[in-house]
Design a protein around this nucleic acid. Structure first.
Lengths: 218, 218
DNA sequence: GTCTATAGGCTGATAGAC
DNA sequence: GTCTATCAGCCTATAGAC
């Protein structure tokens, strides 16, 4: 095993995984178009031609990354849904899980939002199907909560969008936030992910709960 | 006045405004890099060279658009803050205003999120300062609410991020949502902006309100 | 002010040696 | 499997006619 610097690979098979790691980083940072094959290859200590050899094309590499990331995310959401806790607790866990995943894979929210902006331009049916699993877990939890009487009447899609939107935004905004405050001369401490998770969990708990039943009536 | 098709211009001065309109559309749709000067010029029924003549460069046109959009947005937020309603009511109005603005200017949330992703790559201090006005209005309302006792203890920045993130996401996700559901064979009705506004207002009202004071204690 | 033509730079994919 | 060299395409910005 010939050691290399960050992300590099020498032995035959691991050129492939080095390209996956490098691609993840560069695609997230610069978008599909902005990420040049040369940049990805150099970061993987490999060569432009290797991308086409291993993945067919730049787009092929991109899709391989999306599939791997989305699959892992979806599997974890299913894991939470499988515990049969009350719905509000499951929603709080979705929030915590998303944050944990986004911290372990910082490129996930970035690549996801980039795809959203392009209308899923570089995605195949396969990636859409995997991704929708995440929504269906949230939808099912919300519907469970409405049946249980633990959640008020909610639109599952709108509930999902408000959680997903807020969470993604938090995890993509930090570089922008830092620069915006610096340029405008405003000094606000960098927000901690843990604090945001607590904020969102509190918002979910209070904001989505069923109304307390009217005391001694009916 | 020679009439032209959508967005076109003939008379001397309005080539400029036709380029602004066309640029807004094309930049939102394809991003800064993806929007070619030729595409913008054709939509404005003008010529590539006109972009450089009127705005110095493609980036100059882009910044002119950002400045105009952000300024209008910021001015409206200040307008709400100027009414001295209770904080929760102001937050509900921020939500409604954002939605109204996003519907009138569909490219605003898209261009904003694109800039967020790039870390503000194409923005000057001027645009950052204008944009931060929006945050400071929300921050001030939250602080007012905590003083008034109408809002619970909140971090203004996290509150702002959760609102902004959810709202932006809703207004950028529709094309992606449509395609995702179609490809995955899932049939969910297209969400209405008005319903989402109601959802977010309810979430804010219930989720951020101060706890009811303990009855007859102290 | 507006246009055409083009210079100059960059990029994805491939051919072909090893 | 990996690399170098190269081709063909696309893009911004500008020069210069009108």
């Amino acid at each position: 095993m010939k050691p290399r610097g960050r992300g590099g690979a020498a032995d035959p098979e691991s050129t492939r995984s080095a390209l996956l790691e490098a691609g993840t980083h560069v695609f997230a940072e610069r978008g599909f178009k902005g990420a040049t094959a040369d940049l990805i290859a150099r970061r993987a200590r490999a060569n432009k031609a290797m991308i086409n050899y291993h993945f067919g094309s730049k787009k092929g590499l991109y899709q391989a990354i999306l599939t791997a990331t989305f699959s892992e995310m979806a599997a974890r959401f299913r894991g939470i849904r499988a515990t049969d806790r009350p719905a509000p607790e499951q929603l709080r866990q979705f929030v915590a899980l998303f944050a944990e995943f986004a911290q372990a894979h910082p490129s996930f929210p970035v690549m996801f939002i980039r795809e959203v902006l392009s209308g899923g331009e570089h995605m195949r049916r396969e990636e859409f199907v995997t991704l929708l699993t995440v929504f269906t877990q949230v939808r099912d939890a919300v519907e469970q909560g409405m049946r249980e009487g633990t959640l008020r009447k909610l639109n599952p899609l709108l509930t999902h969008f408000s959680l997903m939107g807020a969470l993604c935004f938090f995890f993509i905004v930090e570089p922008f936030r830092r620069r915006a405050f610096r340029e405008a001369g405003l000094d606000v401490p960098a927000p901690e992910a843990a604090d945001f998770v607590a904020h969102m969990q509190e918002l979910v708990t209070r904001g989505l709960a069923a109304d307390a039943p009217a005391r001694r009536k009916s």
